[in-house]
């Protein structure tokens, strides 16, 4: 129906314009302007190879992917049961879980991270408790290392996973679960054979969202990580803010953007065909 398609386009027009003006435009301007400083295509290619091929960038990219993978794993591990509880909760319990998940978003990253310091620090609540109970004799190193990065990022990214999974779980027809039970499946059997497969697209979508967001992180790793917990976005930020070496920043951005777009394509495939389960 051409009319409704036109109508949809008109309705979308403001959003599209907004995206072009505040997002695509500036990015394009940034990339073109940055590369223009380098001159010829050959020079751009040379510089790209030098930067992207450098050991530091390679290590940062490896770090980034490994951290993002770990974070995704833990977010899923915690997020799935949480989403499950949310799916079953009603009334007050539901509101409490939602608030607990979303409330941290009303505070700034900085404040949240300082709160973590109070909890995880050498003299933080956890260490004081463990020392007081005599469980450990030396304070545990819970932050300013990889563990701190993973804890901080897992916390920040948890809501994306929980809300994505919640939507997937909400869409599961409860009659299917009842049917499985009626056909002789145990609780675990119902979960493994029906509920989990039916929410698997949510697991994949949520994991991809979390992973994509995680590879672009720089605040949390900078604040909660140790000296060598360097992620690619932190290098980009330094090139922008510190050395004003925009062409290099632009190239790293392109690398990050390409990785993100590839993942997004996968994400779109898994969410685009809602009904498309096992094909």
């Amino acid at each position: 129906m051409p009319l409704s398609r036109l109508g949809a386009l008109l309705l979308l027009a403001p959003s599209i314009l907004l995206l072009v003006f505040v997002f695509l435009g500036p990015i394009g301007w940034f990339l073109v302007g940055s590369f223009a400083e380098l001159g010829s295509l050959a020079e751009i290619w040379e510089e790209t190879r030098a930067v992207v091929g450098s050991r530091a960038v390679a290590l940062a990219i490896a770090n980034t992917n490994w951290i993002a993978l770990q974070v995704t794993f833990f977010v899923l591990l915690i997020g799935y049961p949480l989403a499950y509880a949310l799916n079953r909760a009603r009334g007050l319990a539901f509101s409490l879980i939602i608030i607990a998940i979303v409330l941290p978003y009303f505070t700034s990253v900085i404040v949240r991270t300082y709160a973590w310091m109070v909890i995880l620090g050498r003299n933080g609540i956890i260490n004081q408790m463990l020392l007081g109970l005599g469980i450990v004799s030396e304070p545990l190193e819970l932050m300013y290392n990889r563990l701190g990065v993973v804890i901080g990022m897992t916390y920040v990214l948890l809501p994306y996973m929980v809300l994505t999974l919640y939507a997937a779980m909400k869409a599961v027809d409860p009659r299917l679960l009842q049917a499985a039970e009626g056909m002789g499946a145990s609780r675990l059997g119902v979960f493994l054979r029906v509920f989990l497969p039916l929410t698997m697209h949510g697991v994949i979508a949520g994991s991809l969202i979390v992973f994509i967001l995680a590879i672009g992180f720089f605040v949390t790793p900078a604040l909660m990580g140790g000296p060598s917990d360097i992620m690619i976005a932190m290098l980009i930020e330094r090139e922008i803010e510190l050395t004003q070496n925009w062409p290099v920043a632009a190239m790293m951005t392109v690398v990050l953007l390409v990785v993100t777009l590839v993942l997004y394509a996968i994400y779109a495939r898994f969410t685009g065909g809602r009904t498309g389960f096992a094909r």
Partner: peptide
């Protein structure tokens, strides 16, 4: 007894065919 302990066959309203299984 739980449903699975009853050993009944069941046909459900709207069939309840599992969409993820052939």
């Amino acid at each position: 007894a739980a449903p699975r302990e009853r050993g009944l066959g069941m046909v459900f309203q709207n069939y309840a065919i599992f969409p993820h299984l052939d």
